[in-house]
């Protein structure tokens, strides 16, 4: 279980203090897929970097499976928005996926089987010896997802992973994330600024306010577990939920706490 309590982060530059995160409290149960959505510039990425142990919070606590997060926790993998910069251009696809496993000191045979099953899980068989920059943007992000999957994390953090790919690819990758989540029984915290994406993917959607950030609202997405791009997005309930999230985000932008209930 991921537990964030009273999280606060202020940046100091000279005498000026910028409050990015004011007071964030939420939990993600094991095996859940939760989407965090908020207006742009609301500190989503700051929040994710704190959870990943890459950034020290100014106050509050984060714990993962009961262990306080101080530095990158074991069993956690992160997929970055900037896939082109997150993958190492000097390594082939296979070496990129394998490198974290080497750091985990897994034996070679185990590494090879994890790499090949992760690549086939994201539909990239046959690209092992290509370099990331020889692939399209969507395929590069699949490599980054394969690298995270091969790592066998219990928690997967995704930081606006599909913000830089085209709409078609994006729909495919959304379905890929849901399929992997259902198959691997992993906890997923997915950050996005796209309201439709948040409702389509999540079991729950947590809405963040503008910076300084607090939790604006939270809804459970009571759509059926098996979703597809055509029918789910045309569902009346989907429209209701996205309208609610949209209103909350608009309210967040105005800086007002709305009282609309779902």
């Amino acid at each position: 279980m991921l537990k964030v309590t009273g999280l606060r982060k202020t940046y100091r530059s000279g005498a000026r203090e910028v409050e990015a995160l004011r007071d964030l409290t939420f939990t993600v149960e094991n095996g859940e897929l939760v989407c965090l959505v908020g207006p742009s510039g609301c500190g989503k990425t700051t929040l994710l970097r704190c959870i990943a142990g890459l950034l020290d919070p100014s106050g509050g606590t984060i714990s993962l499976d009961g262990q306080p997060v101080q530095g990158p926790p074991p069993g956690l993998a992160m997929v970055f928005q900037e896939y082109g910069r997150s993958l190492f251009p000097w390594m082939t696809v296979r070496d990129n996926v394998e490198l974290p496993l080497k750091q985990k000191k897994l034996p070679a045979a185990r590494r090879a089987s994890l790499v090949s099953s992760a690549l086939s899980a994201v539909g990239l068989e046959g690209t092992e010896s290509a370099y990331p920059w020889q692939l399209s943007g969507g395929m590069q992000q699949r490599v980054a997802i394969a690298r995270a999957v091969a790592y066998e994390p219990s928690t997967l953090l995704m930081d606006e992973p599909f913000a830089a790919v085209d709409a078609q690819t994006r729909a495919d990758l959304e379905d890929l994330v849901r399929a992997l989540w259902q198959r691997l029984n992993v906890t997923v915290l997915f950050i996005t600024h796209d309201i439709d994406e948040a409702v389509y993917l999540g079991q729950r959607v947590i809405m963040l306010s503008s910076s300084p950030t607090v939790v604006q609202d939270e809804i459970t997405v009571d759509l059926p577990a098996s979703r597809d791009q055509l029918h789910t997005r045309a569902d009346a309930r989907f429209t209701e939920l996205r309208t609610h999230v949209y209103e909350q985000i608009q309210a967040a932008k105005r800086g007002a706490q709305s009282t609309v209930d779902s």
């Binding site: 970097r49 990943a52 142990g53 890459l54 990158p72 074991p74 956690l76 993998a77 992160m78 970055f80 900037e82 910069r85 997150s86 190492f88 000097w90 490198l99 974290p100 750091q103 985990k104 790592y151």
Partner: peptide
């Protein structure tokens, strides 16, 4: 981003020098 990727996968100092900084 490359360095944060390495850190998030718990690379040690030497591994970050070897696999990120050096290339």
């Amino acid at each position: 981003v490359a360095d944060e990727t390495a850190r998030s996968f718990r690379f040690g100092t030497w591994a970050r020098v070897r696999h990120v900084l050096w290339p």
